[in-house]
Design a protein around this nucleic acid. Sequence first.
DNA 1: GTGAAAGCGCTAACAC
DNA 2: GTGTTAGCGCTTTCAC
Lengths: 326, 326
Amino acid sequence: MPRPAKRATSADVARAAGVSRATVSYVLNNRPDQSIPDTTRRRVLEAAESLEYRPHGNARSLVSGRSDIVLLSVPDLPIGTGISRFVEEFAAALAEHGLTLVTHLAAARGRPLPDVCATVGATAVTGFAPFDADTARALRAAGAEVVLPSPTDVPDIMLPIGSIQAEHLIGRGHQRLGYALPAHPRFQQMAAERLRGVEQACVETGLQPPVTATVSLDVGVAADAVTNWIGQGVTGICAFNDETAVAVLAGAQSRAVRVPEELAVIGVDDILVAPLTNPPLTTVRFDLHAVARRRAELVVAGLTGHDAPAATESEISAGLVERSST
Amino acid sequence: MPRPAKRATSADVARAAGVSRATVSYVLNNRPDQSIPDTTRRRVLEAAESLEYRPHGNARSLVSGRSDIVLLSVPDLPIGTGISRFVEEFAAALAEHGLTLVTHLAAARGRPLPDVCATVGATAVTGFAPFDADTARALRAAGAEVVLPSPTDVPDIMLPIGSIQAEHLIGRGHQRLGYALPAHPRFQQMAAERLRGVEQACVETGLQPPVTATVSLDVGVAADAVTNWIGQGVTGICAFNDETAVAVLAGAQSRAVRVPEELAVIGVDDILVAPLTNPPLTTVRFDLHAVARRRAELVVAGLTGHDAPAATESEISAGLVERSST
DNA sequence: GTGAAAGCGCTAACAC
DNA sequence: GTGTTAGCGCTTTCAC
């Protein structure tokens, strides 16, 4: 069978079916307000099928003035976290609503976000942290109808991770906590957020604030931190993430500090190797799948003008994964 | 200053500058074949600036018949690998050529790839494994000008990982190797590929083929595998990836098998915790950055019709990261 | 050097 | 019920 070199257009289908382009459009979009006889409908459908016709998204969004593209601004963090998982889940969730995800690395290289927003014609733009007022305005001017999260939104991906960690440790009887900060500069903001949660939990329980230390992914550095913690009577460590927690574990081991008897450690993320450390790492895992779905819902809600269904508490919360390191 | 509610169009700029839309187009696209007086040029530029004008990518590609969108089909693998890193690097590399990356999860959920290709109007489609003839044809019919890798291409992301691992071990005097396969079904194909590299290296050196075992991320399972390997005189293990390698390490430790004296282990990926294991994990790291750039070059070359510059050997190769587990 | 006009593929009023 | 027409924002001959 002869293959059309170029992709088929709506006009090709119309010609093949012996109808007008309007009719093709009606049939293919299932317009309820148009009643098309079954025979015509079938002819159109068959023609479209045999020509392998697919509507041209660009042209369509040009006329509707609204694309189905959602832009995600990804912070240029060192990898190993759940971010990529989030991205994939988010893309899948959006796809179910007929939306297409485009990610943009918010690194120095590459064009500014509003430019990208305009060139891809994004209808919605979202990121991990709220956009500042200027950026948000520029994004709107670039054509974005929905910009999330806004500064007033409780960023729904910022779960009370720190509190969960601290409460777990406190519930186990620990009276003096330490916090292991990551060394990478890009993580500082997120780390501060989580540390705040730990501090809050300490205050509420009448404990002193946690003793912080920056722990790079180096056994020596971690070992020194451990020694210092022990010296200050700290018995439980909340680590920024699992990698940092593994470093603390390694540091403790190198100083012959027993975990969890002398020092309990809790991480965040439940990375694949978490059950394989010695002892197996206790950690906080948040359900990226649910968070991503939730975010997709918010985007869709913003686009349709409807309110987003209230988030089910359990849907977006983080869960403790207890193993033997605490 | 009054903000335009809607995004500015080329016509708005023309009006503000007191010129025609054509002139705006010439100025903004720096058309060399048109000589525009500096005063006019400046007026246009200023108008565009003050209106925050950004060209509308959709409309542009509608007329040029070619979008700047590259579609990446991502296999639905369990995360923790370098895939996400590749995606991010790839997106950045494409962005430098003015191309936009859209990723699509090749999972069951979601529409078939050719559909997605057509709706986003992708000019190029690429993936990790070659597309079969039918899919490739459908993609072309959907408007893709470039489809990579083709079955005849040597998939440039499939580096000779297995060989590198095996050669390292053999170079250290190991005479009998083991291979630790991952448990996850989605990894089987990639694992088979790497295993093949190990087998090949063994054949070339006159060794017996490696003793394979499937090692899930469970200490018990790994421990049994270790015992079995030791029983068969195996002294060096190539693991499918670092997570699997960490499992082997844990298994060895639980059976009091000393690493690397009794059993050497080498992984792949250089995950963040690799230097933190006990002993620190030797691994093979491939430069995702280079691989991604290379892939972007291939796409651009295909689009422009030029030949891609030959890959510098060192550019796309994988590198050994020696640590004390071998 | 600059403007007028056509047209990319599609949808939406409005005729017939 | 279906076809005709206009136009989304942009680029691009082709006159002027």
